[in-house]
Write a protein that binds this DNA or RNA. Structure first.
Length: 612
DNA sequence: ATCAGGATGAGTAGAAAC
DNA sequence: GTTTCTACTCATCCTGAT
């Protein structure tokens, strides 16, 4: 992104959605940066005005450029004055709506063509919406803009020409970017970039839009991210088209400018975007979190579900990947796509124990005939911690602990809260109710020289054993002689413990875990449970390359199960600093899981596991 | 150097209110 | 159906005590 062409610094181009625009203060300098490229790109408004003209003719030209008739604009300015362009625009839109049925279609068509939609599409939509309002037409047009799949897709990806007015119209805002030499980016004709480009053009986006989006989102961006980006840009364009530069500056002195921006069209655009996003979610098969979060079933609420795995996702080996459920949008779609398009299973561990823990699991395990571990663990806070009964406030009806995080409330703080609760058993003081500061130790993280903080941290990062064991239970009959496990990002060995508690013998466990503390915990557990199998510890996932895997598979006869829960700290909402998604420093290790799983599959396709 | 404690929101989804 | 309110989140950074 060093080479910025045409004097437009793309980094200054504000691609924010209107949500952010709404809260922006236009006195902020960054917005002056914003206004320049947008202003030029907005439907030729800048061209329509010239600096030598009087304010009246200038503002008239602006609205004429937006597709309103000169007569109507002049009339409205006469009525409302020229100071408040928002009011003028609202009135113009009202007039347009009220005169639509009686006026000629051509006026309406011109109106929308002036807004940047192609004449062909506008004619079609206006004809379809004879009875509709301008809002309805606009909604349809916006939908077409983003979702039109019947748009010409025959265009050659190598072509620099755009095959329809429709696409040219969408290109309006990107005209400044045309001079980007996008073709330089596409070195290999069969590259992933080009496949994305083709995909996007097939979805109805122009090649320029797709290219700009890929440039801005980066080479590793997903289709969802790219479509979201383009959609946001289109919405920003629509909003900016109705928000000329001249209107922005006076608002900076108005303390109520945020409210004043919240005018009808702005609302309309926002609604349209929400609807579009919703449709995108539906259309793209975006991952939806189930409510209640019981996945393919939990012991207390069984669901009769059968699933057909995508062919590429079928084992051997079985694989099992875990991460936090509440990720930034699109993350789980990406995870699923990288894991052979297997549908994630979202489960809240509150159905298994006293603590909530919403997690997503992508796996190719059978889902029929699962059974839970016995004995069933305490299911409520009071069962798990009987002493809490003595001071638990009557107003608090919660029975489940919230998710255990890696940072805990100090003993002093919890004590303060406890005392405060004892004092206030009636109406609760606000600050006390929010004191969510429970910490709960477990013996598993015992180990000489390990601090309490580290123990909590390790526990917080761990699998919920009962939940995972429920999913693993289907393996019990399949591997009576024991299992070969490749455990990536093992942590404190949640997978190993789950298999052990299911009485599935651990023949070979190759554990990859970077934390020495966690390796100590797992080794300690391994020794204390008198495991007879072989434990191989590898500290760094980067050591696990093709050669190493081949050697391990050759030695131990292949892996039956590849388990991994890659770091979530760039995904979880708890992270206030680096919630960077899958591209984050730590969470990007997900791609190492994919790499290793893929290698194992490839190697094992030639070297069958002895167990399968 | 290590550890414990405290301060630090954004983003999101779902419930509740309208 | 839409808007507003509410609750929740495998965390990180900094400071002071040891």
């Amino acid at each position: 992104m060093v080479d910025n062409i045409s004097g437009v610094d793309s980094d200054n181009f504000n691609w924010d959605t209107e949500d952010e625009l709404e809260t922006d203060n236009y006195a902020v300098s960054s917005n002056s940066d914003l206004s320049i490229p947008c202003g030029e790109a907005v439907l030729g408004l800048a061209e329509a005005s010239s600096s030598g003209e009087s304010p009246s003719s200038k503002i008239i030209d602006q609205f004429v450029g937006m597709g309103f008739s000169r007569e109507m604009v002049a009339k409205v300015i006469e009525e409302k004055g020229e100071e408040n362009s928002n009011l003028i625009l609202e009135t113009l839109l009202d007039y347009s709506a009220s005169t639509l049925p009686s006026s000629s279609n051509s006026k309406t068509i011109n109106h929308f063509v002036g807004m940047g939609f192609s004449e062909e599409i506008v004619v079609k939509v206006v004809q379809e919406n004879r009875e509709g309002s301008t809002d309805g037409i606009l909604e349809t047009l916006l939908t077409y803009s983003a979702l039109e799949t019947t748009a010409p897709v025959q265009q050659n990806a190598e072509s620099d020409n755009f095959s329809s007015d429709y696409e040219e119209s969408l290109l309006d805002d990107f005209s400044d970017f045309d001079s980007f030499s996008e073709t330089e980016e596409i070195v290999c004709p069969a590259s992933q970039e080009e496949r994305k480009l083709l995909h996007l053009t097939k979805m109805g986006y122009s090649e320029a839009e797709a290219s700009v989006a890929m440039e801005r989102c980066g080479p590793d961006s997903t289709i969802e991210e790219l479509t979201d980006f383009i959609c946001a840009a289109q919405m920003a364009k629509a909003a900016d088209a109705l928000f000329p530069i001249e209107d922005q500056k006076p608002l900076s002195n108005d303390s109520n400018h945020k409210k004043r921006r919240n005018w009808s069209y702005d609302l309309l655009v926002r609604k349209k975007k929400k609807k579009l996003e919703k449709r995108f979610d539906e259309d793209a098969g975006a991952v939806q979190l189930p409510n209640p979060m019981i996945g393919f079933g939990v012991p207390t609420e069984s669901k009769q579900i059968t699933r057909v795995l995508p062919e590429a996702g079928v084992g051997p080996p079985y694989f099992y990947y875990e991460n936090v459920a509440l990720c930034p949008k699109g993350v789980w779609t990406t995870i699923s796509r990288f894991l052979y398009d297997v549908e994630p299973e979202f489960v809240d561990s509150k159905f298994f124990c006293a603590a909530a823990r919403k997690r997503g699991y992508v796996h190719n395990l059978p889902i029929e005939n699962r059974f839970p571990l016995a004995p069933f663990p305490p299911r409520t806070i009071h069962e798990a911690f009987p002493l809490t009964r003595t001071w638990w406030p009557s107003w608090d009806t919660r029975t489940k602990l919230n998710c255990l995080q890696t940072c805990i409330g100090s003993a002093r703080l919890t004590d303060r809260i406890r005392k405060a609760l004892e004092d206030y058993d009636g109406a609760p003081p606000l600050g006390v109710q929010n004191g969510n500061a429970f910490g709960f130790p477990r013996n598993h993280t015992r180990g000489g020289g390990i601090s309490r903080t580290d123990r909590y941290k390790s526990l917080g990062n761990s699998f919920q054993v009962d939940t995972v064991a429920y999913h693993f239970s289907v393996l019990k009959d399949k591997f009576p002689g024991g299992i070969n496990l490749l455990s990536l990002f093992s942590g404190i060995g949640g997978a190993e413990v789950a298999l052990h508690r299911l009485r599935i013998p651990l023949k070979t466990v190759v554990s990859v875990e970077i934390s020495e503390v966690n390796r100590n915990i797992l080794r300690s557990w391994w020794e204390q449970t008198n495991q007879r199998g072989t434990l191989i510890e590898i500290p760094d996932v980067q050591e696990v390359d093709g050669d190493r895997l081949e050697q391990l598979i050759k030695t131990y006869g292949g892996f039956d199960l590849v388990v991994g829960g890659s770091p979530c700290n760039n995904l979880t909402g708890s992270n206030r600093y680096h919630r960077d998604g899958l591209e984050g420093k730590d969470s990007a290790l997900f791609f190492d899981y994919c790499r290793i799983l893929d290698s194992v599959k490839c190697i094992m396709s030639g070297t069958k596991s002895m167990n399968v």
